[in-house]
Simulated scan of single mutants.
Amino acid sequence: MTQLRAEVARFLNDRLDWNLLRTFLVIMQERSLSRAAARMHLTQPAISQALKRLEDTLGRTLIQRRGPHFEPTRAGEEVYRIANDIYGHMSRLETELDDRTDDITGSVRLLSVSRIDSALYDAFLAEFHRSYPRVDLQIEVMRSSDLISSLLQKTATAGLGLCRTPIEKLEQRCFLRQRYAMYCGRHHRLFGRQALTMDDLLNENFVSFTSDQIGDSLSPLTVFRDQRGFTGRIVAASASLDEVRRLIFAGYGIGCLPEHIVRDDIAQQRLWPLPPKEGIADVEIHLLWHRGRKMNAAESAFLDTMERMMQRYSLQERLETR
């Protein structure tokens, strides 16, 4: 891969076109040409043409297409790492050279669903505070439906929440894609049982989220239960992920939680994984803001910095909790 690095360096020196590398970076982060197009506000043919231009310039195939899905080649993985490094250096250089950051003052009001576990998100907040020490940040936890209502009323800077369908007045960027799976707690009768099947679960009662209903943000969980023929009732519910997790542990019923959040619970045998092994549904947390809201300097800096972080790291990297 040393030769490939030299070819990329020659490409940057001879005909610098960061837009091609940035487009490839977004394609790899989204793992979809159509999602990359939506995120960059471009058409899918434009994204495909940019990818082809980069491949032609480097003389390497970067992506192997398989219908709607693709897999990066070894060269594609290496170019992705190079593009990540370049973008990180550019972002840090921009911050270091901007002597206006200390002068930016103001407040940022961020709305958020409960329990966002991401080491990169924590690092982003720390870096933002170092860069903009005079900006005050207020984070309020609420349900996604309330979060969206507040954003539509222009009463907050931005939100991190669930939004299954695009809303005309809101900008929307996928921040995390969480795989939900089924679990029971240590006090439940199914805890520790091996070789369970879906049939073993159909009569069990449920702990769920208040948004777990048809048409709401977690309706994929509702659809899954209906399609599989579950007959148990919802015996406990909360809008808080931590409280749903607590009730599942306490044995009120089985329930769904994001896989990356409960890894330690599985290791410590507080929770027990249930079928299906592949999980139930992917649920996305989006960064949302009102495109018509006039932002102050602090709010603009917050959104710009967060978007740069999201462009640099893939969805999978953002899921790491430590």
Rank of each mutant, 00 (worst) to 15 (best):
S107P: 01
R115Y: 10
L120C: 04
V108Q: 02
T105Y: 02
V108M: 07
T105W: 00
V113R: 09
L120W: 06
R109F: 09
I104S: 02
L120F: 09
E96C: 06
V108L: 03
L97P: 01
L97G: 11
S118Y: 01
R115L: 13
R100C: 00
R100Q: 11
D122V: 00
A119M: 12
S107A: 12
G106H: 01
L120I: 11
S112T: 15
D99G: 00
D117Y: 11
L111I: 07
S114K: 08
A123G: 10
L110C: 09
D98W: 07
L110T: 09
A119S: 15
S114Y: 05
I116N: 04
S118L: 03
L110Q: 08
D98F: 03
L97A: 02
S107V: 01
S114P: 07
G106P: 03
T101I: 04
D122H: 07
T95E: 10
S118K: 02
D99W: 06
A123F: 09
S114D: 15
I116F: 04
L110N: 09
Y121V: 13
V113G: 10
A119R: 15
L97F: 04
I116H: 03
D98L: 05
S107R: 14
V113T: 15
D117M: 11
T95R: 13
L110R: 10
D103V: 03
L97H: 02
R100L: 08
E96A: 14
R109V: 11
D103A: 14
R109M: 07
L97S: 05
D99S: 12
S107M: 02
D117F: 10
T95Y: 01
D102W: 06
L97M: 13
Y121Q: 04
V113L: 11
A123V: 03
L111R: 06
L111N: 01
D103R: 15
E96I: 10
E96F: 09
D99L: 14
D102L: 13
V113C: 12
E96H: 08
R109T: 14
Y121L: 14
L110F: 08
S118I: 04
L111M: 08
S112C: 13
D122R: 10
G106C: 01
A123L: 14
I104Y: 01
I116M: 08
T95W: 01
A123C: 08
R115N: 15
A123H: 10
L110M: 14
